[in-house]
Amino acid sequence: MAKLTLKNVYKRYKDNKKGEQNDFAVKSLSLECNDGEFIGILGPSGCGKTTTLRMVAGLEDITDGDVYIGETRVNHLHPKDRHIGLAFEDYALYPPLNVYDNIAFNLRAKKVSEDEIHKEIMKIAPLLKVDDLLESRPMSLSGGQKQRVNIARAIVRRPKLLLLDEPLSHLDGKMRQILRTEIKRLHKEIQCTTIIVTHDQLEAMSLTDKIAIMKDGQLQQFGTPLEVYDNPVNEFVAGFIGEPPMNLMTVKIVKRDGGFLFDFPGSDVQIGVPNRYYPAVKEGMMVRLGVRPMDLLIDDENSKGSEVKVAVFENLGEERRISVRVGEEFLTLITTEEIRYKQGDTIKLEVKAEKTHLFDIHTGNRI
């Protein structure tokens, strides 16, 4: 195992056609992954997450900053000298070779003896559940089996650092769920410091000890899955983490009877502002309000809740998702109650005000 440290790392690509510099793909990225931790780098396409992984692996030059694996600065070390294992999203297996020879390939390139290679493969293959596939060729394997072989090839070298570049992106939903469990189990067994790059927040939330969320090449938040879910630092993180996403809407602060209310423009809906926000708000202020779908409730018809119209009703078996129109905004709520609605039905909506999140309308930062 080894600690991974990124200090103020930048990456900029040249535009070869014009000879000009492009914008930074990664900007001022500082990150620390402790021995044995499982870290997820999460973000939308083009946010710089794979570029970051490739700089750690040595497949991309670093424009500025430093990368350390353990105590060693690796900026100019060849990938083979960084003691890493790397599994790509596209498997990259050698079709003419069977599974055994694919896993053995890197060890043979390092002139490891055949006895030692056999010993290592016999240790790793059962962990990845490919021990019964060693004589098979890649063409006969399923996507999940190919990815298991891909990961086995990466860890057979006993790397200090295991790098996984969207390893589940080509798999169907059921197989993704199975391999998520397998990767989690494998990490605990081999106790290797691991970095996974993904655009799937469910993968990051379920697999990792900490998540680094990126946007436009910059780190937005770094913390445990629970921290980034419960305390997002800005509107982007709030909307990116959670399924279905957090409801985000523009509301106005109004004063009434000595207290403050959130007023939803274009509707009659108003909810109380929690006391913790009082020092930061004032009458007439426009803010972005965030509330997760499970923190919206349906009141009984005799309550004082706000009346809203059902726009979309989805029955997903274990849960029901209901979208309602509030002014010009749509809010989605989740319920597990056995209820049925159709478009146009009226329901009474209650918001758990204490569970709301507030963001600056201009910067997007949490208030």
Score class of each variant (00 low, 15 high):
S206C: 09
Q201P: 09
L171E: 10
S169D: 04
L219F: 02
M205C: 02
A238H: 09
K210L: 10
A212L: 11
E227C: 12
F236K: 05
L202D: 10
Q218S: 15
L207H: 04
S169T: 13
D200W: 06
D209S: 05
K188W: 01
L207E: 04
R185A: 03
Q177A: 14
Q218M: 14
L202E: 15
T208S: 15
A212P: 01
A238W: 06
F236W: 08
S169N: 07
E189N: 08
K184C: 01
H187D: 04
Q221I: 10
S169K: 06
P232V: 12
P225Y: 08
L179A: 08
T181A: 13
Q177F: 00
E235Q: 14
L202W: 00
D200G: 05
E189Y: 00
Y229R: 02
G223Q: 12
K215H: 15
I190Q: 02
V228N: 04
P232I: 12
D230I: 00
E189P: 02
E235G: 01
A204V: 12
I183H: 08
Q177Y: 00
P232C: 11
M175F: 09
K210A: 07
L179V: 05
I196F: 08
Y229Q: 03
L226R: 13
R185G: 01
Q221Y: 11
N231V: 04
T198M: 03
E235D: 08
I196L: 11
L202S: 13
I211P: 01
L219I: 03
D200C: 09
L186W: 03
E182C: 13
L186I: 11
S206W: 03
K210G: 06
E235W: 00
S169V: 14
E182Q: 15
H187G: 05
I196G: 01
I178W: 01
K174F: 09
G223H: 12
Q218L: 07
I190P: 01
D216H: 11
R185V: 00
D209Q: 05
N234S: 10
T224D: 09
T224R: 10
A204T: 12
H170A: 14
N234Y: 06
L226A: 10
V228A: 07
G173D: 01
D200M: 06
D209W: 05
E182K: 13
K215Y: 14
A212D: 01
E182P: 14
L219C: 01
H187F: 05
Q221E: 12
D209K: 08
V228W: 03
D216A: 14
R176E: 08
K174C: 05
E189L: 12
Q201N: 11
K210E: 13
Q191P: 00
D172G: 12
L207T: 04
D209P: 05
P225D: 09
M214C: 05
T193Q: 02
K174Q: 15
